[in-house]
């Protein structure tokens, strides 16, 4: 089990694929996604890596967080999340992850806090039908109607009623990574992702689908990606030289 990535939601747009079909995509930006600390099973009882995201002033962090960041020699982040990993996928402290952590057409799960809708009624929150517009109904056209039956003298637990809608953590499974821009740190995820713009999205390999064999193990690091690109360029230059 590999760790994931923390990304910022930029917004939605559309691109054209190789068959000239339109694909709706959500843009996510990965910035300053570094390993701050590592949890180990013998010491902490579980294996995990703590990742950072975003950049902000160091004085805005609290003291324990600052100590962790200084120890790892990192830029002060806006957000930190832990990701459970298997012992073979632990990433060393201080290494920076890149969007090349995922590969094209890979399936991922996206976790985020959904857009808050406030205190919503039954029609908006649970798709209830509401009451009739006429035939003697007054002042209660969007009501939820009955909440039980005669003789029970109670309302069952979990009855769908008006209440807070949205602004709670949600995971959408099996989203497709359409494309990525390693240089800019941009990910294109097909379809919608929970959360509002500029909210933090946690991306992980899809838990319910087999993992692609092309993914980098234990993680796609930024340095590694650069090395790879340099190697590619060198190879291209060599080829060009050979052709001449």
């Amino acid at each position: 089990m590999r760790c994931g990535l923390i990304a910022k939601k930029i917004g939605m747009t559309r691109v054209f694929d190789e068959n000239a079909q339109e694909v709706p995509v959500t843009l996510l930006k990965v910035e300053n996604c570094c390993v701050a600390t590592v949890r180990q099973a013998d010491k902490d009882g579980y294996d995990a890596v703590c990742l950072t995201a975003g950049v902000q002033k160091a004085e805005r962090l609290n003291k324990p967080q600052r100590a962790v960041i200084e120890k790892a020699n990192l830029t002060a982040p806006q957000k930190m999340y832990e990701f459970r990993v298997s012992p073979d996928c632990v990433v060393p402290v201080g290494s920076e992850l890149s969007v090349s952590h995922f590969v094209k057409d890979q399936l991922v799960d996206a976790t985020a806090v959904t857009q808050g809708k406030g205190f919503a009624g039954g029609m908006k929150r649970w798709n209830f039908g509401g009451l009739r517009a006429t035939h003697g109904i007054s002042l209660s056209h969007r009501s939820i109607g009955s909440t039980g039956q005669q003789g029970m003298s109670k309302v069952f637990k979990g009855k769908k009623m008006p209440g807070q809608m949205g602004a709670k953590q949600m995971t959408i499974q099996n989203l497709v990574v359409h494309d990525m821009d390693v240089e800019q740190g941009l990910l294109m995820i097909k379809g919608a992702v929970p959360g509002h713009k500029n909210s933090w999205i946690r991306l992980k390999d899809a838990v319910k689908k087999p993992l692609s064999k092309d993914v980098p193990m234990p993680a796609g690091l930024k340095a590694a990606a650069q090395v790879k690109e340099v190697a590619k360029e060198a190879a291209a230059q060599e080829e060009a030289g050979a052709q001449e």
Partner: peptide, 16 residues
């Protein structure tokens, strides 16, 4: 210019 606009501008230029 924000990231989304820049991205779209680049894509439009790529479309040529």
């Amino acid at each position: 210019m924000n990231v989304l606009r820049l991205f779209e501008k680049k894509k439009i230029e790529e479309a040529g």
